[in-house]
């Protein structure tokens, strides 16, 4: 099992996730652990895709998952908000907690969980509705805003936080699908933050975007981390280096190394990490 030096073994501390303070591996300041994963294994039928992943995610950090295709980084990301539940043959073992809450508790409301742990996908996927409706849908569904005025406020503040308000404020009732790729992705981020999540999972959010749209999203990630914890899967190592506080390297279903991004990209501790990030993998 691969447990990073930064992880706090809960079973040894006798504390719950919500109580655990750890020293931020980047800043050195005391920080709260937001999520913990312990010995997480994922099976697709008989095939074990993840071999016991253990790590902590710290509140208000940006953490990147990198690794070659098929290494399990997206599979693990999808475990963090139970997206793998939607795959019939998929089985998850181990324990994942968010704020002292076992997210695989069978009594848990999964829809509510996914509001707390939002997700942004590789390809922008706005609903075939107006920009306004794209944002308002979630808060209405979760009963966060019922009056029109409240909804208007949520729509505006979400679009502002996603850096999109000035570009769309005059065409809120036009289709979201009419926006450019980068704008659509920011619309999806606005839609995610409209339901006030605590964690945002991003699965290669910029892979379909041009460099300028990518820069805007990266800038946004930097701003969003003031209020959210962000976990991002990316194939673009420069992007991981630019946006994340910590980086985790996955390989063949194992977590090989996790550490502060600047250290991992200048002086990785593991030979396999070094081979991958220098292009000598395989």
């Amino acid at each position: 099992m691969n447990i990073s030096n930064q992880t706090v073994p809960l079973q040894q501390t006798g504390l719950n996730a919500a109580d655990v303070m750890m020293s931020n591996p980047v800043t050195g300041n005391a920080t709260r652990v937001k999520m913990t994963a312990r010995d997480v294994k994922v099976f697709y039928g008989q095939n074990e895709a993840l071999h016991g992943i253990s790590m902590d995610v710290v509140e208000n950090e940006v953490i990147s998952f990198i690794g070659p295709s098929g290494c399990g980084k997206s599979t693990f990301l999808r475990c963090l908000n139970r997206m793998n539940d939607t795959i019939d043959s998929c089985r998850v073992t181990g324990r994942i907690e968010m704020d002292n809450l076992d997210i695989y508790d069978p009594t848990l409301d999964v829809v509510q969980l996914r509001a707390q742990i939002g997700m942004v996908f590789q390809k922008p996927n706005p609903f075939p509705k107006s920009i306004y409706e794209n944002i308002a849908y979630g808060p209405k569904l979760h009963g966060l805003a019922e009056r029109k005025a409240d909804l208007d406020d949520v729509v505006e503040s979400s679009l502002r936080r996603a850096g999109l308000w000035n570009e769309v404020k005059d065409r809120l009732h036009q289709p979201g699908t009419g926006l450019s790729g980068g704008q659509q992705q920011r619309l999806c981020i606005a839609r995610t933050i409209a339901v006030s999540p605590e964690i945002i999972l991003m699965d290669e959010p910029c892979s379909a975007l041009d460099p300028i749209a990518t820069s805007i999203i990266e800038e946004l990630i930097d701003e969003l981390k003031q209020n959210f914890t962000i976990v991002i899967v990316t194939h673009n190592m420069q992007q991981a280096a630019r946006v994340s506080d910590r980086t985790a390297f996955f390989h063949l279903g194992d977590l090989i190394e996790i550490g502060p991004t600047n250290e991992l990209f200048t002086n990785p501790k593991n030979k396999r990490t070094e081979d991958y990030i220098t292009g000598r993998y395989g």
Binding site: F265, N267, I277, T278
Partner: peptide, 9 residues
């Protein structure tokens, strides 16, 4: 090339 790790060093 944007070298990393030992190549960058």
């Amino acid at each position: 090339r944007q070298p990393a790790a030992n190549d960058l060093r």
